[in-house]
């Protein structure tokens, strides 16, 4: 009985997932494609829950669907501004069956390989190793243990990837102030929501040690609060001073690296936490990482350097002036 229910649920989820994916890849209208993609991301979060991966579900909802979706929508909005870049239907794709066949071929080949892999596999894989070392890791959420202890080095590099993307975006030029001041309804909502998001993110950070949650989910949520503020048109003059902003951006990766190196310098080895301290160190690193991830994700959403980042103070003044102009002409009801 339950098997049938599960089976039906699986089928429904998968069909919806495939439909949304297909829609986002093939829809004639680019805007529709993006909406489908966001739906796809949200549905994927459900799939993660179904597959008992709540950590991933949280991250997917916040980052995969939420922030990526916001970015895509922003890109769409820019695209609709310039007349020659409005949604062009992809005729080549529609008329050409070759890619479809290729993708089917690839899928069949990989599917067969996957079947064989499941057949030869030891179903335990590394799970046993993770669970048997969980006690020494300092946390009881196995995903957090892998992320911040067993494979902490990957996570360190991942934070570096995030930093790289942000620096790359900032290198492209100034962020253009683009959002009009919100009306009372939206502003009110955002004002109510922001503290709540901060609270929830702190909760997620704290709970990550033994339950689904952690720095990435918490950071993403915090960044979501920032993005909301921006969408509601709060100008970036609210950014802290350059040095603090810069410090926040690098907080996670620098503290992480520093902990690793200090441990090495005292003779333990890179990122080799003493078991007694592991829990505390992980929380410390995660706290810094949350801050860093939040700042990074939020700034990445701007699509360029905020005025506060700039070295050159003279340009700062000019940009802020431009901000003001934009706000005054903003179409407030």
């Amino acid at each position: 009985m339950t098997d049938v229910v599960w089976g039906l649920l699986d089928l429904l989820l998968i069909l919806a997932l495939l439909a949304l994916a297909w829609g986002s890849l093939n829809s004639r209208n680019l805007q529709r494609a993006v909406i489908y993609f966001i739906g796809f991301g949200l549905l994927l979060a459900l799939v993660w829950v179904r597959l008992r991966a709540p950590d991933i579900a949280l991250a997917e909802a916040a980052i995969g669907a939420g922030l990526t979706g916001a970015l895509l929508l922003a890109a769409l909005r820019d695209a609709s501004h310039s007349p020659d870049h409005t949604d062009r239907p992809d005729r080549a794709w529609r008329l050409n069956p070759v890619p479809t066949l290729l993708s089917l071929g690839l899928a069949v080949a990989l599917g067969l390989a996957y079947l064989q892999a499941l057949e030869i596999a030891d179903p335990q894989r590394l799970a046993v190793a993770v669970f048997s070392h969980l006690e020494q890791s300092g946390v009881s959420n196995p995903v957090t243990a892998v992320l911040l202890n067993f494979r902490a080095y990957d996570t360190l590099l991942e934070l570096a990837v995030l930093l790289t993307a942000l620096l790359g975006i900032m290198a492209l030029g100034q962020a253009r102030p683009a959002y009009a001041q919100a009306g009372p309804v939206l502003a009110g909502l955002v004002q109510w929501l922001t503290p709540l998001l901060i609270l929830v993110s702190a909760y997620l950070l704290w709970i990550g040690a033994h339950a689904p949650g952690g720095a990435f989910q918490a950071g993403a949520l915090l960044a979501g609060a920032g993005v909301l503020l921006r969408l509601a048109g709060f100008p970036d003059s609210h950014f802290p001073a350059a040095l603090i902003l810069r410090g926040m951006v690098i907080a996670g990766v620098s503290l992480f690296l520093a902990v690793g190196l200090v441990l090495m310098l005292v003779g333990r080895g890179f990122l080799d936490y003493p078991p007694a301290w592991a829990g505390g160190l992980i929380l410390l690193i995660e706290t810094a990482a949350t801050l860093g991830i939040a700042a990074t994700l939020m700034l990445a959403f701007l699509g360029g350097r905020p005025a506060a980042w700039s070295l050159d103070t003279s340009t700062t003044g000019r940009i802020q002036a431009a901000d003001m102009v934009r706000h005054n002409t903003g179409d407030n009801p």
């Binding site: 390989a113 892999a117 499941l118």
Partner: peptide, 26 residues
């Protein structure tokens, strides 16, 4: 695919475990 079939990500472990087959080839 390699993790699915051979349960490791470590290169030298995989060097010992990998044998010709669809998984490895793909």
């Amino acid at each position: 695919l390699l993790y699915t079939g051979y349960g490791s990500l470590d290169i030298s472990t995989l060097t010992h475990r990998l044998s010709p087959g669809l998984t490895g080839w793909s």
